[in-house]
Structures are given as C-alpha cells and as structure tokens.
C-alpha cells in the first residue's frame, strides 16, 4: 500500500456519501491532486487503486460546464426548480403594523386595486340583482314574449349594476387613497384610521350636494367602517 491508499483510507469500500452536497464539496478539492498520478513511479499501486470504485463525482467544473440546473447547483436546500423563491425580496410585502389582510399586499397600489376591485365587483353584483328583480317584475303589457322580458332584464341589470358599481367603486377609490395616506402618516393601521378615512371619503363623495348631505354621508360611512372593523375584530 502506498501513501495514496493511506490518503484514501485504503479500503475498497470507500464510504460513498449519499448526500449530494458532501459529494460536491468533497470531490472538488481532492480529485485534482489525485488524478494525474498515472505518471507516478509507483504505477503498480495506482493500478491496484483504480479497481476501487472511484466513479467520477461531479466537480465544480462539471457544474459550471454543463447546462444550468438549479437542483444541481444547490442540492443542500432541496430547491428543485423553485429557485425563484430566492427572489422574493424584490417585491417586499407591506409590513405596516396591523395592515395584514386576507391577501398579501405590496403597498398602497395593491390595496387600492384590490379594495376597489372587490367593492366594484360587489356593487356590480348587488346592482345586477336589483336590476334583475326590477326587470323581471316590470309590467310589459299582457302576454309579453320571452325576448321582451329578456331585454327588460338585461336593461335593468346593465342600468342598475353599472350605477351601483360605479358609485361604490368611486367611493372605494376615495376610501383606499385616504386610508393608505393615513396609514403612511401614522405608521400603523387601526380602526380609528379606517373610520377617519371613511368619514373623509363619504364627505368628498357627497360634497357637491351641500354641507348637510356631506355630513350625513360622512356619518354613514364612518358607521359602516366602524362596524366593519368591529366585525373583523370579532372574527
């Protein structure tokens, strides 16, 4: 036995590490010194040694030379092909205190879009139901045809639905803008914030009708926001 076998532990049953990471890290440093030993004077020992199972483990060179494979690059973490979770930090989530919601939010634009979208869609559904009821019960003379009735229903839906959706959507834009501004100013999100934003948005929404309707609108919106906050706390 030469010094080579001493270096490798000498036993032919060299413990093959099952972990790919150990293989990757271990083989890179050792193999480069060992392989050119065919020109050694002690060729007999190398011939004896080559019978040992030294299958060429993947080295760093192999990793860089072949096509990009994230699973091979970082086998320790078991990433598979889900490597773009590493890039989550690009889009930081909203970490303002108390602003956690059903959907993760990435700041005020996300809040605005999702809030307005939800409100608009529910307004559309509500108004559509209203219009459906209206269109279905509108008197159309005696014995109206199906086509007339369908037209009446569709007219009702598109009329009431878009009215309700648009109104609620605009209200939601005001509310979300005010809410995000208050959040940013105060640095946290709570029920008082929501109620203040609701009061402001209700007042703006009804501002052209006069002072009294504006105050009424503000009061109604504040009550709605307060009960919504209480409901969220309760759940």
């Amino acid at each position: 036995m030469s010094f080579l076998s001493g270096l490798f532990g000498g036993s032919p049953s060299e413990p093959q590490e099952p972990s790919a990471s150990a293989e990757l890290f271990g083989s890179t440093t050792f193999r480069s010194n060992v392989t050119p030993s065919s020109s050694d004077p002690s060729s007999s020992s190398t011939a004896q040694h080559s019978s040992a199972p030294t299958t060429p483990a993947p080295t760093a060179l192999d990793t860089f030379g072949t096509a990009f494979d994230p699973a091979r690059l970082h086998p320790l973490a078991g990433l598979g092909d889900k490597i773009d979770f590493l890039q989550l930090d690009e889009e930081k989530l909203n970490d303002i205190q108390g602003a956690a919601s059903v959907l993760p939010s990435r700041g005020w634009t996300d809040d605005l879009c999702v809030g307005t979208g939800t409100t608009y869609l529910s307004g559309l559904v509500l108004g559509g139901t209203w219009g459906l009821k209206e269109g279905a019960t509108r008197p159309l003379g005696n014995n109206p045809s199906f086509k007339l009735r369908l037209n009446s229903i569709l007219n009702g839906c598109t009329r009431r639905g878009s009215f309700m959706g648009n109104s609620l959507g605009v209200l939601a834009i005001f509310y979300n803008l005010a809410n995000s501004s208050f959040d940013a100013i105060r640095g946290k999100h709570d029920a008082a914030n929501a109620m203040a934003a609701a009061a402001l948005s209700g007042a703006i929404y009804k501002s052209t009708a006069g002072v009294r309707p504006a105050l009424v609108g503000a009061g109604l919106m504040t009550a709605a926001a307060g009960s919504w906050s209480a409901f969220k706390n309760f759940v």
Binding site: L103, D110, L112, C113, V114, T116, G117, L121, V170
Partner: peptide, 15 residues
C-alpha cells in the same frame, strides 16, 4: 385573486 386586482386597477385608472 389577480382578477380583483385587475378589476380595481382598471377601474381606478379609468376613473
């Protein structure tokens, strides 16, 4: 969920 986001985004943009 992206539907809600797009709905609101398009509505806000338009309004």
């Amino acid at each position: 969920y992206v539907i809600l986001n797009d709905f609101g985004g398009a509505f806000s943009m338009g309004a």
